[in-house]
Amino acid sequence: MKSTSIQYGSVAVTLHWLSAIFILAMLGSGFRAASMADGAIKETILMFHVPLGVIILVLTLLRLFWWWRVDQKPRSVEGDPAWQNFTAKAIHVLFYIVILGMAASGIGMLAMSGTGGILFGASAEPLPDFNEVLPRVPHGLGARLMLALFALHAGAALYHHFIKRDGLIWRMWFSANDDEAGS
């Protein structure tokens, strides 16, 4: 369940991949809802998007608690330049900041627009123009920043896997063994 010096544990791996899948679904549904003119379809999308945001917030808080009180992350990859290790850590910190900021701005949008009931399946038709709700701007910027962070994170993982061939990517999977984990 816990991580070792070279491998993430099953709890960390599960939280990572659930978060990744849900964040991708969240981004897709958010961009889709933002581009939707039909209020009924937009509401249907938001009835998926909003509870998913709550789930991502809970997963993120669980991850933070897990790292703070229960587990420790594997050591950095030996041989990588200091700037790469710094950048990797900075991207992870930014992920947490953006996720928490997105949750705060999403809650703010619901509260300020009066559509909070959508979280519990209550109809909010007609939907307000969310562009007129102040937290909409940071929410949209956060979504774009999340895409950039996601691309950097995935790109770095693919770089390590296909270019460096150091097995780093297997540290964040269930079936990795010590040889695959870059030992």
Rank of each mutant, 00 (worst) to 15 (best):
I6D: 11
I6C: 02
I6R: 12
G9M: 07
S10V: 02
A12R: 02
T14A: 14
H16V: 04
H16P: 05
I21V: 14
I21T: 13
I23F: 03
I23C: 09
I23A: 07
G28D: 07
G28R: 03
F31T: 03
A34Y: 09
S35F: 11
D38F: 01
G39N: 11
I41K: 11
E43G: 06
E43P: 05
M47Y: 03
F48A: 06
F48M: 08
V50P: 00
L52Q: 03
L57H: 11
V58T: 12
V58H: 02
R63V: 11
F65L: 13
F65A: 15
W66G: 02
W67Q: 07
R69L: 04
D71V: 08
Q72L: 02
P74L: 01
P74K: 05
R75S: 10
S76L: 06
D80F: 05
D80T: 12
P81H: 09
Q84K: 13
Q84N: 11
N85I: 09
A88W: 03
A88M: 05
I91P: 04
V93H: 14
F95S: 06
F95D: 13
Y96G: 10
I97E: 10
V98S: 03
V98E: 07
V98K: 00
V98R: 00
L100Q: 10
G101V: 09
G108W: 01
M112T: 04
S113Q: 07
S113P: 10
G114N: 07
G117F: 09
I118V: 15
F120P: 03
F120I: 11
G121D: 14
L127A: 03
L127D: 04
N131W: 12
P135G: 03
R136V: 12
H139G: 06
L141K: 07
L141T: 07
L141V: 15
L147Y: 04
F150N: 05
F150Y: 08
H153T: 14
H153Q: 14
L158I: 15
Y159W: 14
H160L: 10
H161I: 06
I163E: 06
I169Y: 06
I169S: 11
W170L: 03
W173P: 00
A176R: 03
D179T: 12
D179W: 08
E180I: 01
A181Q: 02
A181I: 08
G182W: 01
S183M: 08
